[in-house]
Nucleic acid binder design. Structure first.
Lengths: 209, 209, 209, 209
DNA sequence: CATGAATGAGGATTCATTCAT
DNA sequence: TATGAATGAATCCTCATTCAT
């Protein structure tokens, strides 16, 4: 037995260790990327030996893949919460805000995700063809309905989504740049951002008579 | 060291070879990142031997740094072209468009830049403290003037810039994601994007009476 | 150590498990050699955990040694059945046939044995100095008696034995080569071989007037 | 460039180093098998660093495969020298003798080859389907002709070849066993063997009126 | 200018084995 | 009797880089 990979469920200690490894891996991967990260570094961060780490995972890439798959859920959550029955403009603005909060609270997760996409999504293509696409399609259809009903301005719904992703994630993914250009506390930064993005998307979406 | 690094200028053949190496390095770095790229791969792409490559550059990192420094100019160019004497809204929209064209024509450069920022700008901090900051400050000041004069809507000028960067670069940097979610020809993609972004920033910036 | 190695005899369950391990080990060792085989593989083949396996044996080498010691008996059996009172040529030919049947029915055992000898008999030297040598010496003496009496042709009795071993075991040990050169069902193969070897050794041994 | 593997030909130093590596690898592989051998050991035997060794070869298995391919030629040589126009019995006996000399002079090569076959010929199947099969087929046809003409006794020609291989190689491959059973100088051993095998195959092949 | 040769440092895995339960 | 957890020792291999020519 090389490890607990065979079992269907995980014991308490397994769950704990795996969580510790995920946390460490997130830290290291977000900082150095998949290739740049070393098992040694992850193991050190997780306060265990490299071999013990390999007892729980099949290898570096396996950790990466499992980790990034988990992030997908995190990423989709704010989207899932859009209420079709809500007030359209408010719903979109609330989504923007949720995404922004996510960036604020999970910047490393966001950067890890960004790295994967920048490299061409080599590890999670299947997620895009499955759950991700389904959720996006649902949302696009909803936005289209609202546009057709004249409840929000008619623009390309895909581009609208892309824009929201770009804007909200930017504050996490490119924070190094932002901090060099305009140093600021994180709280101020995100308060500002929320104000700005709310203004922008309200201006865009509210239908003028 | 017998290499050309001692001289003040470069001979014709040196310039040629360096250009070939830069082109190859851009290709490889954009695809695999700094750590993921191997000298071997760059050398192969540039059609020369690894050692010959090292005759022209001090090492992998040296290539990367010189390369990314060059990109800064490219990146700043659209910003430099904003005309303080022009019509404010039109000037900003033209800037958006120039950035978008840049993304369309230089996606690898954009991704390389994004990688560097994602990793925390470890190699070009000095550029941000120098030319980059100067240009950004100038632009922010100009935007502020226009806002104070009521010529464009008053928002945080930094956030406005961040938003433009995020939106325009997103189509290059995250194209893998975009293509998975909504496959499209590049031309259509960017035509759509231009329409959307123009709509959005006009809605944002035009001052309502 | 809580294992069963302390006791003088083995309980029923111990005997069963040990047999299962021997069977699995034979399979794996014959396929990959001592070094090439992994405890993991043997454990999987025996349908138990690596640790449980180590509860019954002191280690990989211990399994190997015990296993190969058992094979010695198998290997010597045909030799022991030579009847000093029998008709000499017939006795030798019958021995050839028994060895051939052994090869046919126990090819993995034969290969395992061959591997050990090829590596220089690192694990069972003592057997050669003990029971094996005794049995061989007995047989050589018997053959010499028959030769002295003119009942079989006078050749070097050791070389005769070596030849019989080489010829009969060849069909098991080098079956991969044989099958590549001349594919055939196992039954045909051994029927052919028996005919050929009988012809050869009869031609060799029968004394011409 | 990771090494000289790309070129069509080899420079002097390359040829020398490769030869040294082959010699060392033969020694180590013959003693420990493919899995049991370590690059470290081969490098030490060849008096060079592990990395230098890897500069010349792609890896352990690559060395093994190239080495064993070379052995094939050695192995086939005695077979190629059988003269279709010669006296049949003498030709076969001369072949037996050549194979025996080969075993005497190249025991490690013989053992290495034996190891590969014992493991099921995992690395040189293609050789069997190509040059090896051709040469064997040619010889079998020749033997059959001689048998049909009544010049040697009619037996299965394949079995005859297998027998010659088994007998001659046995003295190299299983020398450890032989030496334990009957210690002897190498010269005596092979002189004995030659006498015995000549007797046996002459007895087998000479046609009785 | 160019390249063949060589190497040191690092990094991922494998695997037998120990230990506690 | 059985197994989950952990580890030390090897071992293969990659890769940037140096050196000599």
């Amino acid at each position: 037995m090389t490890g607990p990979k065979t079992a269907g469920g995980y014991s308490r200690i397994q769950t704990q260790k795996r969580a510790a490894i995920f946390a460490a891996a997130l830290e290291i991967f977000a900082r150095h990327g998949l290739r740049g990260a070393s098992l040694e570094a992850i193991a050190a961060e997780a306060d265990m030996s490299k071999q013990n780490l390999l007892y729980y995972f099949d290898g570096k890439e396996a950790i990466f893949v499992e980790l990034i798959q988990q992030l997908t859920d995190l990423w989709l959550e704010p989207l899932a919460q859009i209420d079709p029955a809500g007030e359209p403009v408010a719903e979109v603005l609330a989504y923007v805000q949720r995404k922004l909060v996510m960036s604020q609270n999970h910047p490393r997760e966001s950067r890890l995700f960004a790295t994967e996409i920048l490299q061409g999504v080599p590890h999670i293509k299947h997620l895009y063809e499955g759950p991700m696409k389904a959720m996006v399609d649902r949302t696009v259809a909803l936005l289209q309905t609202w546009m057709d009903a004249g409840q929000i301005r008619a623009v390309d719904p895909h581009d609208l989504l892309f824009s929201i992703w770009a804007n909200t994630q930017h504050y996490a993914d490119f924070s190094a740049q932002i901090n060099l250009i305009k140093p600021m506390t994180r709280e101020e930064r995100y308060a500002n951002a929320e104000r700005f993005l709310t203004d922008m998307y309200r201006a865009l979406l509210v239908v003028q008579d």
